[in-house]
Structure formats: structure tokens, C-alpha cells
Amino acid sequence: MENPDVQKAKAAPDLARKSAMALLAQATRIELEERWDAWPAKPSIEELRRPETGLVMLRGRIGGGGAPFNLGEATVTRATVRLGTGMVGHAYALGRDREKVRLAAVFDALWQTPEARDAVEASVLRPIARRLDEDQSRRTSEAAATKVDFFTMVRGDD
């Protein structure tokens, strides 16, 4: 099964950047560091907004689908960079990993650079999507194995 983020990117091009950023947000720092270390001809990077950690208040809905309410906060880290080419990249991700988010912003800027997009998709986004897919399908199938198959006992006549 393919990651829904990738499916969306194919279905509607205007959702492509949203999907790319969603994958970058769910990357591990190691994944992004490895891709960045191997990236040829690295552009210069200016930090327009240094990686910064803060809080986002997460909301739920009353009854699941009703009016919103404030559930509790989560740590979130964000960064904005500008490449030597002038392209600006943003990143926001759960957690407090500043270096991961800085690299995610760099790859967001590279993804918006027409000549770099294919390379970002092939070497950065697709491996992340594959890992997330595998993780999701493992958990789905493990949960499926605990599904209750009800059967009815037939009582005897006597």
C-alpha cells in the first residue's frame, strides 16, 4: 500500500508541497543528515529564522466530530532558511530536534527548486515514505491479527 501523502501528491499537484513537507516533518534526524551529507553541490544556507522550539495547543472535537476544544500542548520546532539561490524553505515538526528541522527547511527549499526537485523526491522523500508505509502496514496488520471473529454456538436439542 502506498503512503496517502504520496497518493495525494500524484492526484493534485497543488498538494504536492504539503505532502513533501509532511514527509520531511516525519523524517528522523539521521535520515535527513545522511541525505544532506551525500548531497552534491550543496548550496549556501542562510538561517532566516533559526530553529526554535515552542508549543502548539492541540485541539480535539467534542464527541469526535463536534465543536473544538483544547486538548493539551505538544512541543514543535520550526525553522526558515534561504538558499544561495534565493529559494526560501520552511519546516515545522513535532518534537525538539532543531537540526532535523533546519535540514527539513533546507530540503523544502531544494524541493521548490525545479532542477533539484526530482533528486529530493528520489533520494529524500521516497525512502521516508517507504519507511512510514512499512511501519503503518506492519501496525495495521498486527492490529488486524487481533480482530475478533465472532461465531455463534448452536445449542443441542435435548
Binding site: 495547543m57 485541539r59 486538548l71 505538544a74
Partner: peptide, 9 residues
């Protein structure tokens, strides 16, 4: 600092 409020889960 508080960055904002999420969309409802």
C-alpha cells in the same frame, strides 16, 4: 513560546 492552535484532530 506558543506557536498557535492546531486544527482539530
Amino acid at each position: 513560546p506558543r506557536f498557535g492552535y492546531s486544527n482539530p484532530l
